[in-house]
């Protein structure tokens, strides 16, 4: 299904507009070129290597809870 994953920004490389995001224990490098004013600890929605937009921590928590309820987040999670 057309899902986008909420992930937390944990590092930013401003020269390349790339960031490291984390979802649980999983970390991945994504482009943040499409979203403005991204800071460390912000939550963004990720889809095929791009951060699409920022969401609030509350929205991220609500969405992740839904992913968990759907059985979509577990040890095999791979952004």
């Amino acid at each position: 299904m057309c899902l986008a994953l909420p992930a937390k920004i944990i590092a930013i490389d401003e020269t390349t507009d790339m960031a490291i995001v984390a979802l649980g224990e999983v970390k991945k490098e994504v482009s943040i070129a499409l979203v403005e004013d991204v800071k460390i600890h912000d939550f963004v929605l990720i889809h095929v290597g791009y951060a699409l937009n920022k969401i609030s921590p509350e929205e991220a928590e609500r969405t992740l809870k839904l992913f968990a309820e759907a059985g979509l987040t577990d040890e095999s999670v791979n952004l």
Binding site: C2, L3, I55, R62
Partner: peptide
């Protein structure tokens, strides 16, 4: 309210 967050690709259409 949650639907466009979960299904964010084409979230408006969803």
């Amino acid at each position: 309210t949650t639907l466009p967050l979960l299904f964010n690709i084409c979230g408006v259409a969803q």
